[in-house]
Design a protein around this nucleic acid. Structure first.
Lengths: 207, 207
DNA sequence: AGAGTTTGTAAACAAGTGCTGACATGTAAA
DNA sequence: TTTACATGTCAGCACTTGTTTACAAACTCT
């Protein structure tokens, strides 16, 4: 992963190619993204301050504006990053797709994956961020629905697409409350505890 | 204009409950609760300011602190009010209970009921508010699970209770995204469009 | 070495935050 | 009426917000 830069490798001269010691813009950006994702996911956009994020990342506050323009820009970057997680290549069968989602929903609390999911139902009031969220959810729902037999120009309308969206939104709600509410036994439920119910949920909606 | 004595008395003899025209603490409290509920539900706790709420209610900002102690207190009151909606008497059968939930999830956007649901996954960081939310969700889940056969001291553990919680959390996620994301076709789906999928969801989890 | 750029730091700014106290005004009781 | 209280208004406080600016330190290249 990482290595997002075009990799214009420096000269063949040695330099020992060590990882940049103290100063590395990419690493800083990444740290900020990570801290922001966590804060935004767990506490929401409005309750998170840029100073919180900077402190978590161990980085100066001003760098948020340097690298992401604004707090909104940082949130948007987080959302775009989360969107990539959902824009992965389509799997061949509905069974496999359901398995992928179940894996995603049942990841442990505090994981990056869970933050990515929770981000999708955190709002900032920014229209561009909302557009990213809509596009991501819609894309994902379309791929799920397609595996269940839906086609864009079906005569029976979008009943299946709606069902896919319902299933996805349900998954997000479950993930959020599992991580933020302390509701038992949900919060302490293991992956195995959850896999069955989630699978049943998807089966009921898409089959 | 200048008559200090009550010019028009609706009920000259029995003033038991009402009369004050412009000044009515209960009405003001209610207005604030209504505006706050809407803002908190749609935009989250942190993104909502007390001035927003007061402006919506057409009321002076200072009255929030007079009647609810603090912004946190107002949020807590909103949550407590929402909790009452979920603490209604148990219905006799699982079928009826599912029907009640389906009705609740499929209410139109912008209704008070939808705000009550959305509030349950809005967090303020206040521990007392979190406790109200936990208690409410847990209570509701226990009643649903009980109708499906769960008992507090079942040998098979809390599998059914977990399933009830999953179903409820799923419903909250659906409600939130339906009202805040603009995701289509979900956002424009009618009550009838949604009733089927939601019913299937509950049936799959609790039967 | 030097200049030029990138990366990080510190301080401050204007605007907005939740909240408070002193005051004004309407209402009910004496 | 006069008194007492409940209700609402106003201005401002102390603080935090996101953001910007000026500056320092590290890195690159010649």
């Amino acid at each position: 992963m990482t290595n997002g830069t075009p990799a214009i490798i420096d000269d063949d001269q040695d330099h020992s190619s060590r990882a940049p010691r103290g100063r590395d813009a990419d690493a800083t950006r990444s740290l900020l993204l990570q801290s922001a994702r966590r804060r935004f996911a767990l506490e929401g956009y409005g309750s998170t301050t840029v100073r919180d994020i900077a402190r978590d990342a161990g980085v100066n506050v001003a760098l948020i504006n340097r690298y992401f323009e604004s707090k909104e820009g940082l949130f948007e970057a987080c959302l775009a990053h989360a969107a990539e997680q959902f824009d992965q290549p389509t799997v061949p069968s509905l069974d496999r797709a359901v398995q992928v989602v179940v894996d995603r929903v049942t990841v442990e609390h505090g994981s990056e994956d869970s933050f990515h999911m929770m981000l999708l139902l955190r709002t900032s009031g920014d229209e561009r961020a909302d557009a990213i969220r809509r596009r991501t959810l819609r894309n994902f729902a379309e791929r799920m629905a397609a595996l269940a037999g839906w086609t864009p120009d079906a005569v029976d309308g979008d009943a299946l697409l709606l069902r896919a969206e319902v299933a996805i939104c349900a998954s997000l709600g479950i993930t959020l409350l599992r991580s933020t509410s302390g509701l038992e036994p949900l919060s302490s439920a293991s992956r195995d505890d959850l896999a069955g119910p989630i699978r049943d949920l998807f089966s009921a909606l898409l089959r």
